[in-house]
């Protein structure tokens, strides 16, 4: 938990490839209704992984249960082989954009600076150097010019970029992102993809709840198909198959979506990103 540890452990040079996230037999229930049931999954140690599944499949709950934001019924969570309490400094959470009140009187810079709080600690005001780090994080997502703008005056895509900047400011090794592409414009989507790819190239792990079956194979190399239970998990090319998707979505996946997904999955397997 000391300050030097995360930097030293980032992009481990040797083979000991600990999964960035491992959950074993994880179950979560709301009001005695199971939301996640006996989910076991090991993520890669670095790269981009999507959590895909229908509404109510427990995708967001999985992230929250990993972070300890919702109580676990049973099961075990390991982050880089450690309990979450010992690994918090290596984890960065990007909540759903709709989960906060954007009318709150704060500037983009003040929100991004929250990503520096773990380095500042309790009771201390934010030092100037940390504020500049937050400003740099805003610049990384193309929001430098909006640093002093009140967050309610930003568009949905800009708000999402501010959230991403706050996550980047954490300098985490494992990112858990809840629908980073929800409700953003095309330019923001491209910008976010670029940031995610850079994080992966730096040896970090990004796990994102993702809704868009069409883009999932383009953006992510790894996938967990989830519908209360873990249906399938593995490399996108071999896991994101029409059969697995049908099992995940049951009758809810329309024929059209199946066809699109199958085409994309096929394209991804053969030739990588296949744009229209």
């Amino acid at each position: 938990m000391n300050d030097a540890a995360p930097a030293a452990m980032r992009s481990p040079p040797g083979p000991p490839q600990v999964p960035a996230l491992a959950v074993r037999h994880l179950s979560v229930a709301y009001h005695e209704q199971p939301v996640l049931w006996d989910v076991s999954w090991e993520s890669p140690s670095s790269g981009l992984a999507a959590i895909v599944g229908p509404n109510g499949a427990g995708k967001s709950t999985l992230l929250k249960a990993v972070l300890g934001l919702v109580p676990r019924l049973s099961g075990e969570v390991r982050v880089f082989g450690r309990p979450i309490a010992e690994a918090r400094r290596r984890v960065g959470y990007l909540p759903q954009r709709a989960s906060v009140d954007w009318d709150f009187p704060a500037t983009a810079l003040q929100v991004a600076a929250m990503g520096r709080y773990p380095r500042v600690g309790w009771f201390r005001p934010l030092p100037r150097a940390e504020r500049e780090r937050a400003r740099a994080a805003l610049a990384e997502v193309g929001m430098a010019d909006f640093a002093d703008r009140q967050i309610g005056q930003l568009s949905g895509g800009q708000q999402q970029r501010v959230f991403l900047a706050r996550a980047l400011a954490l300098e985490a090794d494992l990112y858990l992102m809840d629908e980073p592409f929800a409700g953003v414009d095309a330019a923001t989507e491209r910008a976010i993809v670029e940031v995610l790819q850079r994080l992966a190239a730096e040896g970090r792990m990004v796990i994102a709840v993702h809704h868009d079956l069409a883009t999932a194979p383009q953006y992510f190399g790894h996938v967990l198909l989830l519908n209360v239970r873990a249906i399938a998990a593995g490399p996108m090319a071999t896991t994101f198959t029409p059969e697995n998707l049908a099992r995940t979505y049951g009758g809810r996946l329309s024929l059209l979506e199946q066809a699109v997904a199958a085409a994309r999955a096929g394209g991804a397997r053969v030739a990588g990103p296949a744009g229209p």
Binding site: K64, L67, G68, L69, R88, R89, V91, G92, Y93, P95, S99, M114, G115, Y117, P118, W122, R166, L170
Partner: peptide, 8 residues
């Protein structure tokens, strides 16, 4: 939620 995720 974010506050809890970073240990605050």
């Amino acid at each position: 939620d974010f506050a809890r995720s970073i240990g605050f």
